[in-house]
Each structure stands twice: as C-alpha cells, then as structure tokens.
C-alpha cells in the first residue's frame, strides 16, 4: 500500500530560492527510507512538504491516496495528528511537562481521551526504554534520552509514517547509534520510516536510500 506519493513537487521559497525542482517520490508501507544529501540541498524542505507542514508551489502530495492539495487546515491537521509522526533534530520537549506527559502530547490532537493518552504514553515510553524516567523533567534527561522521548511522542499515535529530520544530528556518535538502532527496531516491528540525514553512514543502515542534490532526487544512488 502506498503511504505517501509526491508527484512533480516544486518548492520555491520567498525570495526565489528553488529548494525543490520537480521531486517524484513514493513511500510504500513498511519501507525504511533514508533521504541523504548535503547541507542546503532541500532535505528539510522536502520533509516539511511530505509532512504537510508546508504546501508545494507546484505538484501534488498524496497521503494514503488522498490529495492533500484540496484539504483544509483542519483536515491536514487531523492527518498529521493520526497518520504522521515527526522527529526533529531538537527534541522540542515542553520543559514544564514530565517525560510521560510530553509523550502524551503526541495524542493531544488526535481525539484520544485523556486517560487513554496517559496509558498509551506509558507504553510508548517503555518501547523506547525509558519507562523508569516516566516522571522525570526534560532538564533531568540526557540529550539521547530527550531524543528518545521525542521518538516515543512520534510513535505514540501509531502513525502510518514516521518522518525524521536529522534525529541524530545533535547527538554524539554512540548515542546517535542507539537512536538509529531504535529506528531499526521500530521498522522491524512494522513501522514505515522516512529519515533525512546528511551522513551517508547513517543512511547506510536503511533499506532504501535516496539522494537529494540541489532540490532533485537521484533515486537509488548513494554517493
């Protein structure tokens, strides 16, 4: 089943920068995809468009067969809340919430009831190996732990697709490797993952690799 389909996507940023120049990309269910490319090649722009956080200047984005171009803000938001999970370079945890409450935020906009949110968050936190840090504040966690809390938050709604933008970019090598292993495990359990990185060694651990250069995809080729 096709989770995501980009057809002829062009993105021009204000000021005339062409960050994407006609991208075609299909993500099938169960894939683990790495998009690799140098800085400024348009990776983040691509991820934002895949995640419906931004709309393309031209071209179409289909989520589970639905054209997102015709969707309203409410419909797009619901799609993000229920079908997508985001992991960013920074974990973006809310300082005043405990680890488990931060994870529960991933269900806040999905229409899940309060009590269930908490229970599901506990499960997700356990999945990333941080059950014992449940009631800790973000400031009490290491960088790697914070990122794992962020991953738990992205997978707590059992998304059809997890989108990750340089999730190991702010971590040292050993911690980064642990986080990558976690992605590997999640994929083994059936999650569909699209991860963006500038690091070919990170990309090497993924089943499918796509390279991006100056806003264009070179499918299947890894430099």
């Amino acid at each position: 089943m096709t989770v995501l389909r980009l057809t002829g996507v062009v993105k021009e940023h204000p000021g005339g920068v062409r960050a994407l120049r006609g991208v075609d990309l299909v993500v099938e269910q169960g894939e683990d995809l790495a998009i690799v490319g140098p800085s400024g090649s348009g990776k983040s722009t691509l991820l934002h468009i895949m995640g419906t956080l931004d709309r393309p200047t031209r071209g179409t984005v289909e989520l589970a067969g639905q054209d997102t171009g015709a969707m309203t803000d409410t419909e797009l938001s619901r799609a993000r809340a229920r079908n997508l999970g985001f992991v960013f370079q920074q974990s973006h945890l809310v300082d005043r919430l405990t680890a488990v409450d931060n994870v529960a935020t991933g269900l806040l906009y999905a229409g899940t009831r309060r009590r269930e949110r908490r229970a599901l968050a506990e499960v997700a936190l356990e999945r990333v190996g941080l059950a014992h840090r449940r009631t800790h504040w973000p400031s009490q966690l290491s960088g790697g732990e914070r990122q794992r809390v962020g991953i738990a938050r992205a997978l707590v709604n059992r998304p059809a697709l997890i989108l990750a933008d340089e999730p190991t970019g702010a971590l040292d090598q050993a911690t980064g490797r642990q986080v990558l292993e976690l992605f590997g495990e999640l994929h083994a359990e059936g999650a569909t993952i699209a991860l963006i990185t500038h690091d070919p060694t990170v990309a090497a651990t993924f089943g499918r690799r796509v390279e991006i250069r100056d806003g264009e995809l070179l499918d299947g080729v890894v430099a």
Binding site: L53, D73, Q90, H92, L108
Partner: peptide, 15 residues
C-alpha cells in the same frame, strides 16, 4: 518552536 511542534503533532490553527 512550541507552536511549530504542536502544528506538527496535529494542532489546528484553531487549537
């Protein structure tokens, strides 16, 4: 950044 994150988590403009 918090606003951006919430939008990524599915918050509508209205939320």
């Amino acid at each position: 950044r918090e606003i951006g994150l919430r939008r990524a988590l599915g918050a509508r403009r209205h939320d």
